[in-house]
Structures are given as structure tokens and as C-alpha cells.
Write a protein that binds this DNA or RNA. Sequence first.
DNA 1: GAACCGTGGAC
DNA 2: TGTCCAAGGTT
Length: 370
Amino acid sequence: MPKSRRAALAAPLLAWYDRHHRSLPWRSPPGAPLMEPYRVWLSEIMLQQTTVPAVIPYFGKFLARWPSVHDLAAAPVEDVMEAWAGLGYYARARNLHKCAKAVSERLDGAFPDSVEGLLELPGIGAYTAAAIAAIAFDKPAAVLDGNIERVLARVFAVETPLPQAKPELRQLAAAVTPQERAGDFAQGMMDLGATICTPKNPDCLLCPLQKLCTAHKRGIAAALPRRAARAARPVRHTIAFLLQRADGAVLLRRRPPKGLLGGMLEVPSTPWRDTPWRTSEALGHAPLALDWQPAEGEAEHVFTHFALKIAALHGRINARAAAKIDGQWQQPRAAALPTVMKKMLGLLPGGSEGGAIRSTRNPRRGRARP
DNA sequence: GAACCGTGGAC
DNA sequence: TGTCCAAGGTT
């Protein structure tokens, strides 16, 4: 590819960004002073594999509660996990807190301004390091995320499937990134990918790069980037134990710090396994022996690499007995929980009322049984 | 390198 | 109702 053509990409892209950039809470408009690195970092961590609309309320909540990196570093990690509940990928919250402590205590509150320095911090990988360096410090770092991969794969008609194409795309990103305004360039490429150069039905007629785009010229833009086929998603099963105190509070426990939903609160349940549970079997995993009653309906939750089908048993307990059980008691409506746990609580008797998440039910199957 | 790690919106 | 896939990082 000729060097002139690579260099020709930045100018039209930046001109488009100046006119059509999205206005976002963590972004300063082109030409304005740079956004505070703390905010850029916070937004970038939240935006990892997460959509803009999902992030906006969390970003506001975090910033209001912890206005500086020192405030965040001083918070108990449990508070951070709780504030993160519902956003997913909970290792991010743990690393967020670890990173805040490192910056606050070791670096006196100043984020590194280089890619190498940023890469040392927990939760910051190649993408995030480049994004922070470019956006918060105006360094000429080559940013590569899913959006930019797609735009580059199309403009340069990269037919190698992802993730094999990654090294090739990294080279292209480095080649097209300008020395000036690298942050605006990265954000412009991401905006373009989010609004015009979308995964399906790209709106090539409105694209500022249309004349440069080889995939468009060949009529294969929508087919790129190619991607290796995904593995099928297995189904697992569990029975949740909805143990309710006389005042309505339910029993919750803290999950181990690593792995799935690490460090978050959970509703006690049987192990999650490939085959459905019989009630008689499940009772062996109950927090205590009592008169468990089957809850009506069932719920399903889809994780990245498996789906979970959830049935539930409901039990009642008085305050005296409740005090002897390990865990904590919270009102189901008020608890800050991962979505899958909220779905379990949605199986409580009367759980469909008052805006609780309703269990999924299959009417046909539910009535087939005599 | 491959597997693991959440959630919700778009189509 | 299912598939895709987001401003990815860690192990």
C-alpha cells in the first residue's frame, strides 16, 4: 500500500469528527482542553466490551461518589464492587480499585502519560493504554479496538479472519495514526465505527472514507471483517435457594474473589452443572434443612460462554435462626447484585410485582404436565 | 494461543 | 427466539 494513501486517511476522518463527533460525558469536544486523565481512564475501563448507553449512568454515579482517583483509592473495595453491580465483567471493578490505589499511593495521583507506563497498571492492556495516552495526553499512540479493526479491515480490504488479522490491523493502525490529534483521530474512528461503519448495513453513502475504501469499491464492506466461527454455547442448570427472613430479607453470600462473578454477592444455589437437578438431590446443597417449597417459574441467564437455567426453592426462617447462618441478609429490592442474581430473586413468590425482573416461563411446557 | 469473563441492545 | 457483538484484559 502506498504511503500517501495511508496518510490520506487522517485528514478526512478528522474533518468528519469535527462536524459529527458524539457528545459524551467523558469526552471534551475537539479544540477544547483535554479531559482529566482520571475521567478518561474511568470511562475506558467501563467501556471495555460494554456499550455507551450502558456506561453513561455508571460513569456519572462513580464520578459523583468518587470525584478523584484518591477518593476511589480510599473507598472499600466492597463499595466499588457494589457500585459496579450490573455492569458485568467484575474483574474490571477489582482492577479498577487496585489501579486507583497504585496511582494514588505510588504515583501521587498522576496517571502515566506513556503507553509503557500505563501498561504497568492493573486492568490496562494494549487498547486502553494507547487510548489513554492519545485521548488524555495527546500522545501519538495507535489505538485499536473493535470499531477501528472493522473500519481498517474495510478500508484496506483485509480478508484475513479475526483474530488472525490482528497483527496486520495493528500495523495499519500505526500507519494511519497521525502525529497530531491522535486522540481525536482514535475517537473519530470509533465514532465512525459506531455510527456509520457499523457491523451490519454500513451506511457507506455517508462515510467520509468512502472514496478510500477498497471493500466498498469491491462491494464487500458488509462482509468484513471476517471472523472465525464461534463455539456453541452449552447450557448449565442450577436450583437457587431463596431463603427469606420474616421481615422479607433474603440470604446472600460473598463469592470467592476470582473467577465468575468474583467478589460479588450471590444467592446460594446448587453447583451449576450440565444436567438438570432433581429437588431431592438439590436439597443436599441447601444452606440448611427446612421445608423448602418449589418456586413458580424458571429463569435463564446467558453468560459469555454458557447459558444458565435457573429453578428455585423458597424457604422461610425466623430472625433467631437467621442470625446463626453465614452470610448477610438484604431486602431483595435494595440489594446491589449481578443481573443473574437479580433474576434468581425474581423467582420469589410475588416476584413479578413491582418491577422486579420476571422469570422466563414457557407456557406450553408449563401446562403440558397433568 | 485459547479459554475465561457479563450484560443488554440491535436485528 | 436466536445470533451477533460492544472503547478488552487476564491467565
